[in-house]
Design a protein around this nucleic acid. Structure first.
Lengths: 193, 193
DNA sequence: GCGCGATAGTTTCATATGCAACGACTGTCA
DNA sequence: TGACAGTCGTTGCATATGAAACTATCGCGC
């Protein structure tokens, strides 16, 4: 972790030396930014299509996708397999159940848990969405050579895995948070939220 | 665009044939899903760090980043360069200005426009964040070979570009929307919002 | 059996988001 | 010059989000 110039002796130097470096920072080259832009554009694309054609959101589609694959699942199981927040899963499942696409029953073995599954209508909707989703993916893939597409898929898995590790590392043991990073950043007041 | 079985003659076949295909749909292999998961994890990682260390959001950081690079910009100029919604830019800039990090003045040439720029404190904060951002990017990059990292950067640019084209195509002329996609999907009621 | 900390899921609440409406201003065309 | 369609940026509103609180239940230890 690079140390930022924390000396207070010279405002001039503080502004000139790191600023000379910082001025060269190009947001459009920054990988996290590119990733975010790409993901947002594609999410918008898919969200619009799912919403227009089927009246469901991406979160709801994900829930249906894992239920279509795994049969019945508990909210927790859905949460794991969709990588979504449990609150998001809970709400998506409630909406789908209200729309008659999901069945929900109490888990016989665990009184806290529930089992969600696709109703016959849910199965039909799932079967209708899958080809559309695949076609949209193919439309995206048509923009680059197949080898690039496969590489992108692989690299996204790799970066997500690594990011997951970093997240876990920072969530668990929180040592001297904001110590080394903020020390010396005399930015003054934190922006009001 | 793959045609989905829209025949109505046999509910059995409608359920068996496409479902057999649909059941094999693996969300975790779906590239848009992977992209979203990767982007969300990394955004959380960066958002947490920026917030803890500097009290700003990613949107605010992006505004500062482009102002640090280009000097003064109008809200519209910021919007273009950050790929963010104009509303998001407006609010981020307002918060940063309230925190004393941005200066804002009327544009002499155009009474509708404004000019935003970094205040001296904004410049210092910008100079403090850049090395942190670079260090975090390096931490991420450490998870894969440099060649893979470069490939990922390039492929993200390519996919975002292609997605942008598709978005533009679907936004402009909206011909028979939901015609070919929804035709034959007898999913019944749209999920209530 | 019976506390009691841990777990599953939902709900509450404060914030974030984006579309649409708005006010302010511009440049053009008659 | 003086309407008026178009643009710039902000604000209002309805929805989406997630952290934390809450309810119901579990299963361990005694």
């Amino acid at each position: 972790m690079q140390r930022l110039s924390s000396d207070r002796e010279s405002a001039d130097r503080r502004e000139r030396v790191p600023a000379a470096d910082a001025r060269g920072f190009a947001l459009e080259e920054f990988l996290p930014y590119r990733l975010s832009v790409a993901a947002n554009r594609i999410s918008r694309l898919f969200a619009r299509r799912y919403s227009e054609a089927f009246g469901i959101s991406i979160a709801e589609w994900r829930v249906m996708a894992v239920l279509g694959r795994f049969g019945t699942l508990s909210p927790g199981g859905i949460t794991e397999r969709t990588e979504m927040d449990k609150v998001k899963v809970s709400r998506a499942a409630a909406r789908l159940a209200a729309a008659g696409l999901l069945s929900s029953e109490a888990d016989a073995a665990d009184g806290r848990a529930r089992r969600f599954g696709l109703t016959p209508r849910g199965v039909r909707l799932h079967a209708a969405i899958v080809p559309i989703a695949r076609a949209m993916e193919a439309e995206l893939a048509a923009g680059m050579p197949p080898a690039d597409w496969e590489a992108l898929r692989r690299l996204l898995g790799a970066i997500a895995g690594h990011a997951g590790e970093l997240e876990a590392k920072h969530e668990g043991p929180q040592p001297d948070m904001r110590g080394p990073t903020c020390a010396g950043c005399d930015a003054g007041a934190q922006a009001p939220r």
